[in-house]
Every structure is written in structure tokens, then in C-alpha cells.
Simulated assay, not measured.
Amino acid sequence: MLERWNTAIDLIEKNLDGEIDVAALARAALTSEYHFRRMFSSLAGMPLSEYVRRRRMSVAAAAVVAGEPLIDVAVRYGYGSTDAFRRAFVSVHGMTPDEARRPGAILSSRRACGCASRSKGAPPCATASSTSTRSASSARAPAFHWSTGDRTPT
């Protein structure tokens, strides 16, 4: 069963720069959309929408650090303006895109989901407490797989 959930996570990762079809994710996990969302929240410690938003912002941060034009990155990841993208970037990474482009800047993901209070042995949060986005390949790696909870790139 967890292999099916990993397939759903892989679908999310492949479609971060497009629309996420929750019905397709649910089909991949062999469940209904309703149960997929509930189980995802339970396993990841945050709603699906928050997970997708944070993953998109992690990948977008790698593009920002690589020097891509801000408007291109904002549009690619679903933001209608650079102002909206900047606000979201600051809420996730704690600094503006311009600050992130400075040499030596280290981006961190804020732990808004409360995973720091999780009990020992619980699945890890889908976001890392400190995520370096200096390379696009590390930002494209999925946050984790359900079967082990280990951070494993695909």
C-alpha cells in the first residue's frame, strides 16, 4: 500500500510546475480524494495544499538562487505577480528572493506544521528545518517516501 503512496508523491514531484490533479493522486494511491487528503494530512503532518506550496517554493528557490528572472519563476510556479511570489517566498524561507541570491545565503523552511512537537518514531515532516537550495537537483528530490521516512532522491 505504501508503494502506491510513493507513486502519488512521485506524481506530485513531476507536476510541481503545473496543476496537481488530486483525483489522479487518489487513483495512484487506490483511494478516494477525500480519504487521500485525510491520510496525506495525517502522514505528512500538513494538508496536501501546504505540502505542494512548500515543495514548489523549495524548487522555485533553487531557480531564484540560480539567477533566473523572478517573473519567470513566479509564473512557472503559479504566482500571478512577483509581489505575490515575494510574499510567499518570505513566508516559507524567511528572506526575500533578492536576499537569497546573495553569496552565502542559507534558506530555511519554517516549521509551521508543528512537526517539532511530534512524538519519537512518528513520520518526519515533509519540510526540512534547514534546506540548502544551492543546487536544483537537491531541490527536485522528494522530501521523503512514506515507507521509510528517509530522505531519498529519485
Rank of each mutant, 00 (worst) to 15 (best):
D21G: 06
D21K: 15
V22R: 14
A24F: 07
L25M: 13
L25Y: 04
L25K: 00
L25W: 05
A26L: 09
R27D: 07
R27A: 08
R27Y: 00
A29M: 10
T31F: 13
T31I: 14
T31D: 05
S32Q: 12
S32D: 14
S32K: 11
E33I: 07
E33K: 14
Y34I: 11
Y34W: 11
R37T: 06
R38E: 12
R38D: 09
M39D: 12
F40Y: 13
S42D: 14
S42H: 14
S42L: 15
A44F: 08
A44L: 12
M46H: 07
P47C: 10
L48Q: 04
S49L: 03
S49I: 06
S49P: 04
S49T: 08
E50G: 07
V52Q: 11
V52C: 12
R53V: 02
R54P: 00
R54Q: 13
R54D: 08
R56H: 05
R56N: 08
R56G: 06
M57I: 01
S58F: 01
S58V: 10
V59E: 03
V59L: 14
A60R: 04
A61Y: 00
A63C: 10
A63I: 00
A63H: 10
V64P: 02
V65H: 04
V65G: 02
A66T: 04
G67T: 03
G67H: 13
G67D: 11
P69D: 12
I71R: 15
I71Y: 08
V73I: 15
V73K: 00
A74Y: 03
V75G: 06
Y77A: 07
Y77S: 01
G78F: 01
Y79F: 12
Y79G: 05
Y79T: 02
G80Y: 00
S81F: 02
S81Q: 02
T82S: 12
D83T: 15
A84W: 00
A84F: 00
F85Q: 04
F85E: 02
R86W: 02
A88K: 04
A88E: 09
F89Y: 08
V90Q: 12
S91Y: 01
S91K: 14
V92R: 02
V92N: 03
G94S: 08
M95G: 06
M95K: 05
M95R: 11
T96Y: 06
T96Q: 11
P97I: 02
D98G: 05
D98H: 03
A100P: 13
R101S: 01
R102F: 05
P103H: 09
A105Q: 07
A105E: 02
L107H: 00
S109W: 03
S109Y: 06
S109M: 10
R110S: 15
R111Y: 08
R111I: 13
R111E: 15
A112C: 08
C113F: 07
G114F: 12
G114A: 13
A116R: 13
A116N: 10
S117T: 12
S117N: 12
S117R: 14
S117F: 11
R118A: 14
R118F: 14
K120H: 12
G121Y: 07
A122W: 09
P123Q: 01
P123R: 05
P124Y: 07
P124R: 10
C125P: 03
T127V: 15
A128I: 06
S130P: 02
S130N: 12
T131E: 15
T131A: 15
S132E: 13
S132T: 13
R134F: 01
R134D: 13
R134Y: 04
S135K: 14
A136F: 13
A136M: 13
S138V: 03
S138F: 01
S138L: 04
